[in-house]
Simulated scan of single mutants.
Amino acid sequence: MTQTHTPIRLLITHREADEAVLVLARGLAQLPDFEVYLTREGISSPTEEEGVTLLPCPPITGKVNLSVIRLLRHYTKQYHFALTYSPGSSGLSNALMATLGLGTKNVAYRGTGARVRRTDPTYYLGILNPRVRHVVCETEHVEGYLRGFFPEDMLTVATKLFSLPWADKALAAPIAVEALRDKELRLSMVANNKGRPFKGLRTLLEAMVELNDHRVGLVLVGNYDDEDRAWIESTPVGADVAFVGETPEAMSYMARTDVYVLPSWRDASPRVVREAMSLSLPTIVSDIPGSRDLILPGQTGLLAPAQDAKALSEAIRWMLTHPEERRAMGRQGRERIARDFSPAAYTGLFARLFRSLSSS
């Protein structure tokens, strides 16, 4: 007689699922031992999309949303979910309340090393709730911080995936900035800088002044403070910096440059660094948790101390004077994305984790 096994029924709750969550859901749904369900706003009845069952759900806008809790509880009883996975804190807190007394195991996600306070009761609605069975950490830095709150066997590091075809679209249609077309070395930075000095834009602009080499151009994509633009335009290298502004075609602008620079003072696990590596761009990033965890120093890029314009200018100069080595770094960066951040590897990690939790 053929023995049948009950599939692992997983509910993923979210406020707004990013592409990594969607790829994860679809990847797990292709495995024979998983049934995957995902909350979705704006639909009126359950529907299937690429193997994933989408369940209608109101917007998850707060940690205690009674209509969401009632609906998630109804779904949990109807579909008998073994696990929930919540990539956001609001989804987590509502899922914890919705599954109370039902035996469902809840998995949390933590993408930032920002301080968790035991004295703040709101944390017990989410990540510090004793019903959290496991926490997925975006980086080793986040995991290290959370070891002060959880035993090691309750923590797993799973840095978000990146799919090379996402970059291939930009590589097929790169966008050049005409004013910088003839530069020997074109740098790019993509960030929302306005009112956010920790992104390090001023440090990068100061590094351009320190370098003072008209062979180097800088393409800035995203918003910015007017004071920063006015300042750099008053310097001798003002014409070497192009402010593109906000655009959905950021990766296409990056694809027409030679080196990606991210001079943040603090960051979690910046997706833009993975984008740059997938475009075969060598990177210069600040030596801070999150950013430095994504690159292999000396192999896929260089590290520079945060808020050190002189050190950053020296790293840029190295890229200028070592063209063959920087191109090799770019190739190795793309290989690292394919090897270490692939959808298959990411899905496999979660599949192993969820199987272990469902059987324990």
Results as ranks from 00 to 15, higher is better:
residue 134 H to V: 07
residue 132 V to C: 05
residue 139 T to G: 06
residue 133 R to P: 03
residue 146 L to W: 08
residue 161 L to A: 10
residue 125 L to H: 04
residue 160 K to D: 09
residue 135 V to L: 06
residue 152 E to H: 15
residue 126 G to I: 03
residue 139 T to Q: 02
residue 135 V to N: 02
residue 137 C to D: 01
residue 152 E to C: 12
residue 151 P to Q: 08
residue 129 N to L: 05
residue 143 E to R: 15
residue 124 Y to Q: 12
residue 134 H to W: 11
residue 159 T to K: 06
residue 160 K to Y: 11
residue 140 E to K: 11
residue 124 Y to R: 15
residue 154 M to T: 13
residue 147 R to K: 15
residue 129 N to A: 05
residue 126 G to V: 02
residue 140 E to F: 05
residue 153 D to A: 10
residue 151 P to T: 08
residue 130 P to G: 01
residue 124 Y to I: 09
residue 148 G to K: 15
residue 144 G to T: 15
residue 144 G to Y: 09
residue 127 I to F: 07
residue 135 V to D: 05
residue 137 C to G: 01
residue 144 G to C: 06
residue 142 V to C: 02
residue 155 L to A: 07
residue 131 R to D: 08
residue 138 E to K: 14
residue 161 L to E: 08
residue 143 E to V: 04
residue 160 K to M: 10
residue 124 Y to L: 09
residue 158 A to C: 13
residue 152 E to F: 00
residue 141 H to G: 12
residue 152 E to L: 13
residue 144 G to V: 01
residue 126 G to K: 07
residue 148 G to C: 05
residue 142 V to P: 00
residue 133 R to T: 14
residue 153 D to I: 04
residue 158 A to H: 03
residue 133 R to Q: 14
residue 157 V to D: 05
residue 156 T to S: 15
residue 138 E to R: 12
residue 130 P to Q: 12
residue 161 L to C: 13
residue 140 E to Q: 15
residue 131 R to S: 13
residue 127 I to G: 04
residue 126 G to Q: 06
residue 155 L to G: 03
residue 137 C to A: 00
residue 133 R to A: 15
residue 151 P to W: 10
residue 143 E to P: 00
residue 134 H to Q: 09
residue 153 D to L: 09
residue 138 E to H: 11
residue 125 L to F: 08
residue 160 K to A: 12
residue 145 Y to Q: 11
